[in-house]
Simulated assay, not measured.
Amino acid sequence: MYIKKILIAVVLLGLVGMGAFAFYVYTNVFSENTAFNNKEAHVYIPSNAQFRDVLEELEPLVDNIDSFELVARRKGYHTNIKPGHFIIKKGMNNNDIINTIRSKNIPINVKFNNQERLEDLAGHISRQIEADSLALLTAMRDPQFLTENDFSQDTALGMYIPNTYEFYWNSSAETFRDRMRTEYDRFWNESRVQKAKALGLSKGEVMALAAIVQKETAKVEERPRVAGVYINRLKRGMLLQADPTVIYAKKKKENDFEQVIKRVLYVDLELDSPFNTYKYAGVPPGPIAMPDISAIDAVLQPEQHDYLYFVADVTNFGYHKFAKTLAQHNVNKAEYVRWVNANGVNR
């Protein structure tokens, strides 16, 4: 009888223990442990992150960080941390959260356009992926990479085609740069290559010319016409005489890309720079800004016309007046100069 009571007590204690364990497992592993109101939260875990860094990142997002830490250690996550961008959904338990940040690195969309220099591009990208701006700029300017890929410091910006691309957030600077080289090759398909050849232009010259077109007009529908003017000038051996190249040359020489120049003065036209198309014939040695795809394709397929000149149209802002002769251009230019003077645009 005494032994029977002992056995019953042991069984009961076992059941209580199993119940307690089940409660522990449910409470710590399978019960909801999120503290945000949105449907999901984004978690960014840097490369070389320590477990304490993960806990710090997750603490505002969970109800009970201690239970998360306990389960994470039980599952061995604390010694096998994965960097990346992860999405935690509302209502997840500790087990779900750990499985997510262990194996479900989600790509992000990286966007860029119209950057004026590699420095600007590096800064812009560094706000979207883990790599910092210095690492990105160093990778972009790497002499060995540029030489091996037929670019120079002047032409390097032309390798980056503005668009939206999928990247893992923890991509390195070199990974970003190398992917952009691949996208550049993909962009320059056989059709575009043949169009450039038909114009007698290299890829680099197309990019440099497209950058001028980009700066000349924000109106996408007008870009093929502007491109046609410059193609006509090149065919006739005329100077391009593009004001945006003078502005760029001035900024570059003075190492001040923050200055705003609304009016090019005659003294600026004498600036000795290979980017100054009032002094040097042909296409500049590199792009003066990052052209978008519409500007590039405008150069590759310019409007066929006989225009050689254009100036801002003060009666239809954002657009330009085009002329076939210098005499007509001077009439259009005089109208523009009168407007500029009347509105006090001195610089």
Rank of each mutant, 00 (worst) to 15 (best):
A342M: 12
E270R: 10
F23K: 15
I129K: 08
Q328G: 10
G91H: 06
D243F: 04
A208Q: 06
A295E: 00
E166N: 13
F176V: 02
K90C: 11
F36T: 08
R225M: 10
K324S: 04
R186I: 11
A249P: 02
E40D: 09
Q214T: 11
R127S: 13
T325C: 12
L13G: 02
A139K: 07
S126P: 08
N341Y: 10
A334I: 12
S191E: 13
L265K: 07
A289H: 06
A173G: 04
H42I: 15
K215G: 04
V283H: 07
H329D: 05
N232P: 15
L157P: 01
R181H: 15
R236D: 02
I129M: 07
Y266L: 13
V62F: 09
P162V: 03
N330S: 01
G17D: 06
E59I: 10
M290G: 01
G17P: 01
K251E: 13
L308M: 06
Y266T: 13
G204M: 03
I81P: 00
L157C: 02
Y77D: 00
N232W: 14
Y307N: 00
D132C: 03
N232Q: 14
Q304Y: 03
E32M: 14
E148P: 06
A9E: 08
L300T: 05
V11N: 06
V71T: 07
N114S: 11
L326C: 13
A298N: 00
V25T: 09
T155P: 04
F30A: 12
D297M: 05
G14D: 01
E221H: 13
D256F: 05
G200W: 01
T147P: 02
L209K: 03
F317L: 14
N94A: 03
F310P: 04
P284K: 12
Q301R: 14
E258L: 10
G17C: 07
V337I: 14
L15H: 00
N64Y: 13
R74V: 15
I6F: 02
I8M: 11
E116C: 12
Q128K: 04
E190L: 01
H85S: 11
R263T: 00
L136R: 01
P244A: 09
N276C: 02
R141T: 00
Y278L: 12
E174S: 15
I8D: 06
Y309G: 05
I65A: 03
D268T: 14
G286A: 06
